[in-house]
Design a protein around this nucleic acid. Structure first.
Length: 756
DNA sequence: TCCGAATTAATTTTT
DNA sequence: TTAATTCGGA
């Protein structure tokens, strides 16, 4: 038992040993949050004799869930297996399956990811004879997802204008098609469960008695339905422990509501509050820089994050001429670090958007530095992988329309557009699945014989495969590949792309074998669920390579050396290109994102920007991010091509008059005293509090007010479509308006329009 | 029905 | 720029 308390500071210990009732832990970056959660669960099991299966721990990623389970296995051998640990999505999926009959769901429902959802919506919109330029599936999907995050069914959706009324109808129709396919989208997993909990007292009673202790990690990123779910589970015992950091809330666009943690005490007035403010991860300088930036936010829980770690090196700001220069300089620095005691896997490059990875990838390849990109295109999103999985899904559940459409003519078997249209029509008329319609057409003697024959061949193939359904996913997948000659077709192509596709398929097969070896009762349903809920970030790092990823993906990770690239206005902070002044909430979220990025670094932090950048065709002048100017000058070492007398639009900084006073001429490599510091000694220096600089809000009098707002009825110009009139305005991300152009109505992102 | 060519729209972040 | 989708000819 002593092992549970070893090495904890008083606040951590208080959180670990807290007894009954609600608990909120404000855990600053690097304050040992994971440690507290792990120890607390172990403590509940060991000291309070809580059976593991009555403890639920919700994490943000599958990887975090796995790690939690592994660490607990070490702390409490043999007990961790029966714990409930997982993401909201995984946990809710499991509960939905367990109570499927009660809820009126098929136990083996499939989960649709975003791409599946979008193709379902495309089919729905098409089937309703609507113009998908006026109702772009992506935009409708965004609205439906938002509705589900807020717990709204179609009839609860606002419909103030014709556009919104139609969206509501699409939503309703979509729900019916999803039910017919016995499919749930990501949003459904939580929303449906919460809805059932509201409507079925027996279910609510069962679930609130199911767990005795609930823990939620990254609570600042929980949205409305997720909180409702947690509240329902805890309303009886009230043993709810939430852990989070409002400064690290970066998922507002996904419905995350920081008020959930900031106002936790209003929901649970008797909640115990613990603040973890000692940082064990970063150097003083890194922490001071990060603190100074986030201190510019107005709406936050006051806190003082401090560390006993040494001062460390100054934060290096790398000023570059252009994007090529930036990638080159960053890679040079990486090479130097790699020569001076750092392993490649100690280095990470973070950026705001995936699109930024390209230039760096090229530069890294040229320098023969091994790297891995996290995110972007998910492994399971690759076309060939999706094809194979679609076969498995149809075998598993023939009513899965989206998957059926995907494979029906892959490989080409002469079932084309005409036949598919006929099927869709029949299905719509009879209110059945596409597969049922397919069978009907096959058996309908009034149909053309040639098409009937092709359909029969296809169903025969499926039937043959379905017979072997229970032999495990891996075997089944190999059967599918053999029966469709999928790999043979790729091999015949004999191109590098085809080869890499074959490799990807091999990798799926390997992961299936792995799954069968690991799972207690391997089955197709579980495997398919695992695969759709798995993110790229969940795949673990083993090889010695530099990691490239978005700041979002870096949440919860740490690296000895972190590079953050593209610190420029419009990019980081990003802005949605909406006309007029900036949204202060959005800017504050960007600042929190910067805070997350900076605090990933343990020893060295490099921040880079370019004065001009190639975007599409032309070269755009860029302005250094205001976040850079929010870092105290003393913590910064400026290197690189900062010789330009002044940036395009000099910014006033609280630490100096303008950019010229900031830079100190061209001292190209001055910043790289790159060798790794000796292993950190256990210092017992008195704690130095790091205070944010006071009164340093930047005067941004030259804020861009170039383009005016787009409003209803306004005449606007688009570079391609010419001049038109705005007929509807929709807020959203990004904001769009519907415009009547000479050649028809279109939905356009408003930043692509100029008023005339 | 299929394939390559032409067209067109788009850049945030993800379970 | 480039990815995705549509189009047109075979």
């Amino acid at each position: 038992m002593s092992s549970i308390a070893t090495g904890l500071n008083p606040e951590q210990l208080a959180a670990v040993e807290h007894g009954q009732g609600p608990l909120v832990v404000f855990a600053g970056a690097g304050s040992g949050k994971t440690r507290v959660i792990t120890r607390r669960v172990a403590h509940l099991i060991e000291a309070h004799r809580v059976p593991p299966y009555r403890i639920l721990a919700v994490t943000f990623t599958n990887k975090a869930a796995r790690e939690l389970r592994e660490r607990l296995e070490q702390l409490t051998p043999g007990q961790a297996k029966s714990l409930w640990v997982g993401t909201f999505h995984a946990v809710c999926a499991r509960l939905l399956r367990a109570h499927a009959a009660q809820i009126g769901l098929r136990k083996d429902f499939v989960i649709y990811d975003d791409a599946d959802q979008k193709s379902m919506l495309t089919r729905v919109i098409d089937g309703m004879d609507l113009d998908d330029r006026v109702f772009p599936p992506k935009q409708v999907a965004y609205r439906i997802n938002t509705a589900k995050q807020e717990g709204k069914s179609p009839d609860m959706l606002e419909a103030r204008d014709p556009f919104e009324r139609t969206v509501r109808e699409i939503y309703a129709e979509y729900e019916e098609r999803m039910a017919a396919a016995s499919a749930l989208d990501f949003g459904d997993l939580i929303y449906r469960l919460v809805r059932e909990l509201d409507q079925k007292p027996e279910l609510r009673a069962a679930l609130k008695a199911r767990f005795s202790h609930v823990l939620v990690d990254e609570f600042q990123d929980v949205n409305h339905v997720q909180f409702a779910f947690v509240q329902a589970l805890c309303e009886e015992h009230r043993n709810l422990c939430v852990v989070g950091d409002d400064d690290q809330s970066i998922y507002r666009w996904r419905g995350a509501d920081r008020r959930n943690i900031l106002e936790f005490r209003q929901h649970f007035p008797d909640a115990t509050v613990v603040k973890l403010e000692q940082n064990y991860r970063s150097t003083q300088r890194i922490l001071r820089a990060a603190n100074a930036v986030v201190a510019h936010n107005l709406e936050r829980e006051p806190k003082r994050l401090w560390t006993e770690n040494e001062d460390g090196a100054k934060v290096t700001v790398v000023a570059c001429d252009d994007d090529r220069d930036e990638s080159h300089t960053v890679v040079q620095a990486m090479l130097m670090l790699a020569d001076n005691g750092y392993a490649r896997k100690d280095l990470a490059l973070l950026y705001r958007t995936h699109a930024q990875s390209r230039v760096f990838e090229e530069a890294l390849r040229r320098s023969n530095l091994p790297y891995r990109v996290i995110g972007g295109l998910r492994f399971y999103d690759r076309a060939e992988v999706k094809d194979l999985l679609a076969y498995l899904r149809v075998i598993h559940n023939p009513a899965d329309d989206v998957s059926l459409v995907r494979i029906i003519n892959k490989p080409a078997r002469g079932i084309g557009k005409t036949t598919l249209e006929r099927m869709t029509e029949t299905a719509a008329r009879g209110g059945t699945s596409l597969y049922a319609a397919l069978l009907a057409l096959r058996d309908d003697s009034s149909q053309p014989a040639a098409s009937r024959k092709k359909l029969a061949a296809f169903t025969e193939l499926l039937d043959k495969l379905t017979e072997r359904k229970d032999r495990g996913p891996a075997t089944l997948a190999r059967d599918v590949l053999a029966a469709t000659s999928y790999i043979d077709a790729l091999r015949a192509e004999d191109t590098p792309e085809a080869d890499s596709r074959i490799e990807n398929i091999q990798e799926v097969l390997t992961s299936m074998d792995q799954y069968e070896a690991d799972a207690s009762e391997p089955n197709l349903t579980e495997f398919l669920e695992l695969v759709t809920l798995e993110t790229d970030a969940d795949r673990s790092v083993t090889d010695d390579a530099i990691t490239l990823m978005t700041v979002h993906a870096a949440k919860g990770l740490e690296f000895p050396v972190v590079f953050v690239a593209g610190l420029e206005e419009e990019t980081f902070p990003s802005h949605r290109g909406y006309a007029g002044e900036e949204d202060p909430d959005e800017l504050e979220e960007e600042r929190r994102l910067a805070y997350v990025a900076f605090t990933r670094a343990r020893e060295r932090l490099f921040l880079s920007y370019a004065n001009q950048r190639r975007i599409y065709n032309d070269i755009k002048l860029r302005r250094r991010s205001r976040f850079l100017d929010e870092i105290p000058r003393d913590e910064v070492n400026l290197v690189g091509a900062a010789r330009r007398p002044s940036a395009p639009a000099p910014m006033r900084s609280p630490y100096g008059g303008g950019s010229s006073s900031y830079s100190s001429g061209s001292n190209y490599n001055a910043g790289y005293s790159a060798s790794r510091p000796p292993a950190r000694s256990v210092t017992s220096r008195p704690a130095q509090r790091v205070e944010p600089p006071r009164g340093s809000y930047i005067d941004r009098s030259e804020a861009n007010d170039l383009d005016g707002g787009i409003a209803l009825g306004m005449r606007v110009q688009h570079s391609k479509f010419g001049i038109g009139r705005v007929t509807a305005v929709a807020d959203g991300v990004p904001p769009r308006v519907t415009v009547d152009f000479p050649d028809g109505s279109r939905s356009i992102i408003s930043s692509y329009l100029t008023p005339v």
